[in-house]
Design a protein around this nucleic acid. Sequence first.
DNA 1: GCAAATTAGATGACACATCATTAAATTCGG
DNA 2: CCGAATTTAATGATGTGTCATCTAATTTGC
Lengths: 153, 153
Amino acid sequence: MSDPRWLDDDEQRAWRAYLRMQSRLTAELNRRLQAASGLSLADYEVLVHLTDVPDGRLRPYELQRALEWEQSRLSHHLGRMQRRGLVRREECGEDGRGAYVVLTGTGREAITAAAPDHVGAVRHLFFDALGPGESGVLEGLAVRVLARIDADG
Amino acid sequence: MSDPRWLDDDEQRAWRAYLRMQSRLTAELNRRLQAASGLSLADYEVLVHLTDVPDGRLRPYELQRALEWEQSRLSHHLGRMQRRGLVRREECGEDGRGAYVVLTGTGREAITAAAPDHVGAVRHLFFDALGPGESGVLEGLAVRVLARIDADG
DNA sequence: GCAAATTAGATGACACATCATTAAATTCGG
DNA sequence: CCGAATTTAATGATGTGTCATCTAATTTGC
């Protein structure tokens, strides 16, 4: 029998299809968001987390945990978003090392304007393609894969 | 009733889980591949397509269509891979504008050495987490999403 | 209370992706 | 044929992600 390490034809096709979907869907969502609002998907995720919280104010390390980003990626990205006026940095009284990232009015307007179309695109391109119960299957699958990565990585 | 443009709780959870799985799985596979072989996922995909073809020789535009990459991304990436000795460029007799990308011995050795572990990781982290029939569901889902992007983008 | 370890965050260098532009060869319409 | 449109490919500028490193403040152990 064949080496169990390799993928059979069904798995091969599923994996290829998944990879193609992933890259094309991400690219398409990013393209639309960018065109409609000038925000990237990365900007969007940062802004979502800031709007989820009272005062739109978070410590960078909290944002980092929430986003599961590299610390340095976040730091660079916040710098760029700050230059564009989407967020602002403030000193942190309680912890002299630390800082706060604060949503600006511009940032809040940008995400507020961008969100409906973006969510609409997610629905239109993704969820409208799913059959009944498939979103549950997908979630379960994702959760189990994440558990394996955590257990094993 | 609620605005059909927004996602309900199940969809919200599924989408978040999918995004997390996607980024973590890609990062983990890339990390392992890089550590084991010095290849990135991008290198790997290029090399896979070159090994799939007799002589390991393709026109850049063929590679581009197969990978669904931006033309300029491919061109830059091939330049870097060439500097590392994984591929080499040759002139194209039939078409004076064109070129060939050719797999080098080094490139073939690199992908040959890398493939078993990489496929093993895909199996271990991803397919081993799937229940029976789920790979079929996933493929169908991906194909339908791709169709929507094509129809609509 | 102080030295060592840890934590928060920024930064510079470098790999990578995208956009706009360019150049050259080929194809197409008349 | 011959000029216009298209195709193939490379390139430079710029935005983004990662790695290694650095600073400064806080916490921990004694």
